[in-house]
Simulated scan of single mutants.
Amino acid sequence: MRNTRTTLTRRAAVAAASATAALVLAACGSDGAGGGSGHGGGHSSASSSSTPSATSSSPAGADAASGTHNDQDVAFAQGMIPHHRQALEMAALAAGRASSAQVKDLAARVEEAQDPEIKTMTGWLRSWGQAPSEAGSMPGMDHSGQAGTSGAHDMPGMMDGKDMDRLEKASGAAFDTMFLTLMIEHHEGAVQMAAAQKEKGAYGPARAMADDIVTGQSAEIAEMRKLLGED
């Protein structure tokens, strides 16, 4: 994994960006509000869809059509649940710490989209006889930043405890910039995980959710880059 390199890069970017946060976000004005399509509209299809996103040309097409699942589907759900939970933890901080209305709106949309997806994936795992992550827990990571045994710390885009502590202590424009910078990397990790599910998964609804995640979170990445003045 690229954890060491990306973590150092991320921290340098956060430190540099925070110094000019107020100026950049003020210049953005209201341009970013609602700029990304999000993926809140996609999770309902993932939880109840009877039409898989896989096509007959896909290696997993036959399995998707039959409604069976494979190890990749299980790994996707077991990994994405704690990944989403951390995004929700980050988003929950915005209401009381963000100064930008655009950041608060984005955080609310993250919560609206990802909380139902957690519930859907938990249902899949239970129906498959697999153990979902415990509510409120994050396998492989505790809040001190120490990796555990199950490897969630290695999932792409996951913040470590130090990053989360810094975000919790930030406020105002500094929080806005840090939140956007860290959430971009978090979303990029989710897109990477979802792309692997689209390629290797067999379960139609899980592949459909992965497609929603790629589409929605890619749009939110573009929105966040615009708020940071990168586009």
Results as ranks from 00 to 15, higher is better:
A87R: 13
I118K: 09
A65N: 08
A33Q: 12
G32E: 04
E199Y: 08
E220C: 05
S171P: 10
D31Q: 06
S53A: 14
A22E: 15
V74H: 05
M138W: 01
D176M: 14
G34V: 02
S133M: 14
F175N: 04
A98W: 06
D212A: 15
G229C: 07
T20F: 06
T51N: 12
Y203P: 00
P156R: 09
R97D: 01
A62I: 01
R166G: 15
E220V: 02
Q86F: 07
Q78C: 06
D165W: 00
E111P: 00
P132N: 09
E111K: 08
H84F: 09
S218E: 04
V110N: 12
A87S: 15
A87Y: 13
G32I: 03
Q197W: 01
F179G: 09
A77P: 11
G32Q: 01
S56I: 03
A27S: 14
P156Y: 11
A210V: 02
A64I: 03
I184P: 01
P82D: 08
A19N: 08
D63C: 03
E230S: 12
K119I: 09
M138R: 04
S45F: 07
M155G: 02
S144H: 04
D63W: 00
M90A: 05
G148N: 11
Q217S: 07
H43A: 04
R2F: 02
G151S: 10
T177S: 15
G35F: 13
V103W: 04
A95H: 02
G67S: 01
G34F: 03
A22M: 03
M183T: 08
Q86A: 05
T120E: 13
R10C: 11
M164D: 08
Q114D: 04
K104L: 09
E185H: 01
G204W: 00
A64N: 05
G229Y: 08
P156I: 11
R5I: 14
I81T: 05
P116K: 12
L93A: 13
S57A: 13
Q197G: 07
A98Q: 08
M193G: 06
K200V: 00
H187D: 05
A92G: 06
H43V: 13
G161P: 11
S100F: 12
L88M: 03
D231M: 04
M138E: 03
T215E: 14
A173W: 04
L106K: 04
